[in-house]
Design a protein around this nucleic acid. Sequence first.
RNA 1: GCCCGGAUGGUGGAAUGGUAGACACAGGGGACUUAAAAUCCCCCGACUAUUGCAGUCGUGCUGGUUCAAGUCCAGUUCCGGGCACCA
Length: 817
Amino acid sequence: MSYDPSAVEQKWQKYWSENRSFEPSDNFDLPKKYILSMFPFPSGRLHMGHVRNYTISDAFARFYRQQGFNVLHPIGFDSFGMPAENAAIKNGSHPKTWTYDNIDYMKKEFYSLGFSFSKERELATSDELYTKFEQGFIIDMYEKGLLYRKEGLLNWCPHDQTVLANEQVIDGCCWRCDTPIVKKEMNQYYFKITQYADELLSDLAKLENGWPKQVLTMQENWIGKSNGLEFDFELSKESKAKLNDKFNSFTVFTTRPDTIYGVTYVALAPEHDIVKYLCDNNLLDKDAISQIKDMKNSSNIDRQKEKSGVSLGVDVIHPLTGQSVPLWVANFVLIEYGSGAVMAVPAHDERDFDFAKKYSLPLKYVIKPNDSELNKNEAYTEAGVLFDSNEFSGFDSNEAKGKIIEYFETLKIGKKTTNYKLKDWGVSRQRYWGAPIPFIHCQKCGLVMEKKENLPVALPSDIDITGEGNPLDLHPTWKYCKCPKCGGDAIRETDTMDTFVESSWYFLRFCADKTNWEKEPFSSEQIKYWMEVDHYIGGIEHAVLHLLYARFFTKVFRDLGYVDFDEPFLRLLTQGMVLKDGAKMSKSKGNTVDPDEIIAKYGADTARLFILFAAPPTQELEWNDSAVEGAFRFIKRFYDKSNGVYKTTTKPAIDHSKLNKDEKFARKKVYEALIRATDVYNNKYTFNTMIAGAMEAMNALTSQNNSDVLTEGYWILTSMLEPVIPHICHEISQKYFNLKNFDSQEIVDEVLQSDSIKYGISINGKNRGEIELTIGLSNDEIIHLAKAEVSKWLEGMTIVKEIVVPNKLINLVVKPC
RNA sequence: GCCCGGAUGGUGGAAUGGUAGACACAGGGGACUUAAAAUCCCCCGACUAUUGCAGUCGUGCUGGUUCAAGUCCAGUUCCGGGCACCA
């Protein structure tokens, strides 16, 4: 019978399903592996990126099952979100119908790819049961002060008609639809992720061996910790009077206290209270007020184009010199960082320099390079030696930083402070298809939590989705309710939660089976066993989104007493993108390849083999139709050549010494491939080299005629390749080995040793020949034979040094006589 | 601007400091066939030479360390990614 992928694959998919082959065991005495891939949004169909993601995690899961581990390899759907609503607007479908139809279709695709997911733990985050417990956490977090509501200036996407978190703004545009975001003042709920900023940063050290460096760096930069000095500038007497004594002083933050004697002006953000007061009370001329207004209204991108500012006609007192310094408003000062006010040192900061040049403000240099001349045409931002800095003159600038902070602290006019770029996570969204925030606004009692026994606060199904406004808010009845506290008329919160809240804890839910899901959000006993996730596989685009939020939730849950570990994901593998014709596959570029078509034409095994063979998983993968063809040919050959294998339920015992050269070579190739395979799962993740090893072994096996060797080879190779091409390996294994070979394979050492080894001979490091030498020769003998081999290169030369690298090469160092 | 990666044949990619280009794809040649497909075999970095099957060069570039460098170090160019007026 020739290879018929569709028949073979359907047969085994049915078999696995009927035998519940991929359900984890409840025997907690077994060693475990939790293999998780980032769950998909149910957009409709799988794309090649999904196939790559799940092929990788499936290889891990299948490998560890063979090694005797109890493996949890679950899948679910991150099923709330905008696209469901956009589809509703476009086609008039209901978001729920659209979502669950897509889930059904995608589940079939998973099935047809042979992924070994636990079917009994599948979930969708839009399930009401999931919402119920999530809303419970929201209430817990509110009570702990980790969730709060405040009026603020928010990122608003005019296209999606919703607020976005900072992490969801990419280059000033919406992460989903690329529309430039605008700032909008509104009420919003925030998670106090900043409370965990320091731990989120320091615990990155725990992930150093398991996470890609790039992701660690991205999180580190995102958290953006900086140490410095915080102190107050007092307003001059006249200025206080001008401001009707409403303001005495304001705070600034600097990481360069060593430049303090170079301050020549001070700048405020346009949103600063003092600026607001000056504008509101007409203490500035009309022009100035309108310029400040423009600054506030311009987007972040516009603000970066050119520095601009206005003098406020107010002076402040330098805390150390007592000199008076002018106060400006400047568009490059950000209200959301530090205190929204900076001391400006144009001589030693490029931004301050540009601003000072534009408005002809004075420069005062106070640091000079250690070993070169100061260039007064630019800002000198490097370290150096202080001058014109009173008692600190002469100090190295790095040393001076600490000294000056100390000085401020002694005088009690400032203190050492740490600032973070990380902002609190804004989580409310003005959309329908999300988990409702379980709060109620009561005129009498204010903001009230829904009672936990009333959860979930479910979405209404009769909904009008037009794309205009918040559908929940516009619903005729849904938001009207009674206050859980006083029983009076009240109104439900109509904002829903960011979908990243759902993906921040789904991995905990998977730890228990469905029977438990009704009772509790997750089982602490099961979590103790299954967590942490051993291998997490997904795209790098979540480096500062999902992966940061999930770490945050884990720490919060720990502090709420739900879990007892600090980090959810021990090892992270970020897979590269799938490209075609050099560009990321996308519908708009028209360069997509539909997984369903590939499966129909070649089968799932071919798709999986190609994906793992064409590139290491962390690199970009260039789709190549003829290489897919090649993968198919390999499987076909692998199947065809199994004809010579005989039936057995144990690995054949072979007397290695009686084999001929080709037979020995074939065995050696098989075992070498096996050794490579173990390495792959432990740390290298280079499935491509593992598969190459298997191909080499196959080539060697078919170049010899010993059926024992062939059978042993297939016993090992079908086991080794099962994680990659499971269907055909099961087919072959069932036919010959009664499925007894899916097990951890022992290495036979004698196979790896051969009677002779090829040595390379080099002279002065240059390759000059090679020689086959029997094992066990002394170095002198080896050198003697090697010299004979390359004698023509030694004429007229004296040998200075002789080096023998065992089993590799001989290097002779020579010079002319 | 700052911080990470990366650069190897026509292509994807291999190489614990030890014979660069494994394994594939594409390409070329051949066998089988009436023919095609499938399959099998051979060649396949560049240049020079040659029917003595040998030599020279070669992992972006310039240096360095070493008996030996794609690999380590310093510098440099280009490409990709992240952050970005963060005081």
